[in-house]
Design a protein around this nucleic acid. Sequence first.
DNA 1: TTCCATGTTCCGCA
DNA 2: TTGCGGAACATGGA
Length: 264
Amino acid sequence: MPELPDVEVFKRYVESTSLHQDIQSVEVPGRGMLRGTSENRLVKSLKGNRFEAARRHGKYLFIQSGKAPWLVLHFGMSGFLKYGEKSGDEPDHVRLRISFSNGYKLLFDCQRKLGEIGLVEKVGDFIEEKGLGPDPLQPDFDLETFKEALGNTRGMIKSALMDQERLAGIGNIYSDEILFQAGIHPKTPADRLEEEDLERLFDKMVHRVLPKAVQAQADPERFPKDFLIPRRHGDGTCPRCGTQLDKIKVGGRTSYVCPSCQPA
DNA sequence: TTCCATGTTCCGCA
DNA sequence: TTGCGGAACATGGA
């Protein structure tokens, strides 16, 4: 679930549900997902404040509360947010529970606990410390920025797209989609791509795959008909030509490729 | 029971 | 130095 489009949807979800309400209590059930901070400090800095703004960089979500540090969430492979009435049912693996004075609560559920919960003073410093590359949905992300981010790596293009220090936010699922839409094989060495390949890759990523995914609430069932993602767990055929998709390992990750639309 | 999973990090090897 | 494969982390579903 949690690649750039998913996290962008979470950000909008927070903005539309959880801002400007008094934070009544903060709980960290089970513990184990806090990074660089303690439950005590988390509670102390959030309780009594209000969330005022949300930001996203790559797969990280940042939520600001008053003058306190920003709350940082990373969703790992299984994290998601759920806002609802305090008395309502909860999903099975709640790792953070924030209750508001209006009778509602914001839950962070993460079954596999591969995400993280933390606090940061400055978002910019956090991004720098992590060495995160530019976010492809930022307005100033242009073709030049993209080419610089890729650099002259000899590695496979899919691995380069997924490298968070080059680009922030692309993961296994969306790298497959972007490469499929651009008609490029994931194992192609990045430094062997032609100028027009790079332009097409940039265009599909920034102007089609990512925005369409966000628009569809990152829900594969709402994706355009020619998207590859729903076919991963569907019939496994190419949405464009009907060819049976190849399931291969690229950089250790399972990748779906149309042998006809994405020749090696 | 075994394999696999939308992520990140660390280690050894070429 | 760069890139890759594998393992680890934690947990559950097919």
